[in-house]
Amino acid sequence: MGFAVDTRRLGRWALNAVACIAMAYLLVPLVSVTWLAFWSQEIPTFPPEGYTFAWFGAALAQPKFVGGFLTSLQVGIAATALGVALGVPAALALARRGFPGRGALNQFLLMPLVVPGVVLGTAIYVFQVEAEIATEWPILGSVPGLIAGHALIVIPWVVRLIGASLAGFDRSIEEAALNLGAGPWTAFFRITLPSIRPGIVAGALFGFVTSFGNLEMSLFLIAPGMTTLPIAILQYLEWRLDPTIAAVSVMQIALIAAAMLVTDRYVKLARVV
């Protein structure tokens, strides 16, 4: 009896310990980069000699970081809009219509998340080169070209998260709207769309974060002189290693955390994801 109780207590204790280790594993990089951003010495060596806000100023003084940030923001927003516009109908078709190859298509739409970024980047690079030759439009290295590429990694998030919203959606709600005199379009925009809004918002948020942090694909698709924030960070790191990078990272983390918190106020992300 005593032995059984001890085993159970031991089991619970072990579970808590594993959970703590996992949490620490997730948090250590975030905490250390944040800490590092405030160290006063230029070459990060332990222990810190003192603390300063100077690196944030240094980061904002770098036109590459500011320009890269604006490009990433612009591309992220546009790619998210495009991904949502394409992903909503795709998710609806996958959830609602039975057609041959539906399962395969469902898997296929997740591919951009599974395929290594370098492979995806290469593939899109080659495609855009060919497309540019064929159409003589300046696709490669253009902002629209970059947006189109990024939309590809937004779509899986949108499709998956809207799909989850639709799975819990009672279709008789739509039928009720039709019965009350709403045509199919009115029913969709007034009833269906608001009901799956949590999925759309969550999909857009995760899609945006993915696009904003993407490095591999952008490396293939940008033109000389153009830069996104992750690329600017990489380029800076090739020459220097000082807490400016940490400061940039902290600002990036803060931005994404703020976006998630604000979103969560309107849509409970935990209910969708």
Partner: peptide, 12 residues
């Protein structure tokens, strides 16, 4: 006027 088994109220 149709009344559904699942109520089918508009949740939002």
């Amino acid at each position: 006027g149709l009344v559904f088994q699942s109520y089918a109220l508009f949740p939002h």
